[in-house]
Amino acid sequence: MKKVIAQTEINVNEEGYMTEFSQWTKEICECLAEEQGICMTEKHWEVIDYIHEKHNGNEALSIRGIKKSGVINIKEFYSLFPGGPLKKSTLIAGIPKPKSCI
C-alpha cells in the first residue's frame, strides 16, 4: 500500500508499518510519531537509534532487551511510547513489527 506523509510517498503494510526502510527519513519519522500522538524528543531519538542498531544487527527486539539496553528503562520506554511501546517505536522507526513465533 502507498501512503503520503511529509509530502513523500512511502510503502506501508495494512498495519501502517513501512515496508521499505530506505524510504525512512527523520521527517517521515516525526510525522509517523505525530500520528501516534507522540512528539519526538531527544530521548525518543536515542531509542530510535538503538532500535535501528538492533535491527541492522539482525537482533530481535524485546522488552527484556530494553531493560539491558543502557538507553532507557522499561518504565521510561512506556512513558515515551504509551500503549504498546515496542509496536509504536518500531512503527515510527520504519522497521517491521517485532515478530514472535506462534
Partner: peptide, 9 residues
C-alpha cells in the same frame, strides 16, 4: 510472562 516459551500454545 514473556516470549519465547516452549510449546507456545
Amino acid at each position: 510472562t514473556e516470549m519465547p516459551i516452549k510449546c507456545p500454545v
